[in-house]
């Protein structure tokens, strides 16, 4: 861990989301539905120096585990992020987020004329076409969506 990250205090129990692209931390907080009613203690580093990325964002959340769908959503806007699970100041598990091949129920199709945007009993469902640049395809209307469109259409 480099010096800049150390400026953010360690957490006792909870989750660290590291290697978030610079400036995207606020977007990650919104994915985690962290708003002004938050009860956990949270540290956020924006544009801190990183050996690997140059600059990065990092988020540390006390007493919070992430659900799979939340990790999947984070992977769509921060595909190189790593998640550390901390217990009693120790990292007990660390893993990179992974873009799922099938993206289910976390993105709304950006094609307004797609049948999945109607009152039908289906969730948005996409296939991952490419990681870099990020490109996914709706399994219903076959329309592709790029990173900008995906970010605007996260549920």
């Amino acid at each position: 861990m480099d010096e800049q990250t150390l400026k953010i205090s360690k957490i006792k129990d909870g989750t660290v989301i590291d290697h978030i692209p610079p400036g995207k931390a606020l977007r990650v907080l919104s994915i985690l539905r962290i708003d002004d009613h938050v009860e956990n203690s949270i540290s956020i580093g924006i544009r801190v120096t990183s050996r690997r990325l140059g600059t990065k964002d990092v988020i540390k959340i006390e007493n919070r585990d992430l659900e799979k769908f939340e990790v999947d959503k984070i992977s769509l806007i921060a595909p190189d992020a790593t998640i550390s699970i901390v217990s009693n100041y120790e990292i007990i598990e660390k893993f990179p987020v992974e873009l799922p091949q099938r993206i289910l129920g976390i993105v709304k199709c950006s094609n307004a004329n797609c049948i999945t945007n109607m009152k039908e009993p289906v969730q948005g469902e996409f296939s991952l076409l490419s990681k870099k640049p990020l490109l996914i395809r709706c399994n219903f209307c076959e329309r592709t969506m790029n990173e900008r469109e995906i970010t605007a259409s996260l549920i």
Binding site: C109, N111, N113, C114, I115, T116, M118, K119, E120, P121, V122, C138, N139, F140, C141, E142, R143
Partner: peptide, 28 residues
């Protein structure tokens, strides 16, 4: 819903042909 219409039609036919104004309707 289209989903219900199709489930109903399943009992009436062997093959279903659909034209619909929305993209993805036939896949659904």
């Amino acid at each position: 819903t289209l989903a219900d219409t199709v489930r109903m039609a399943e009992g009436y036919s062997d093959i279903i042909v659909i034209r619909h104004p929305m993209e993805g309707a036939a896949r659904l």
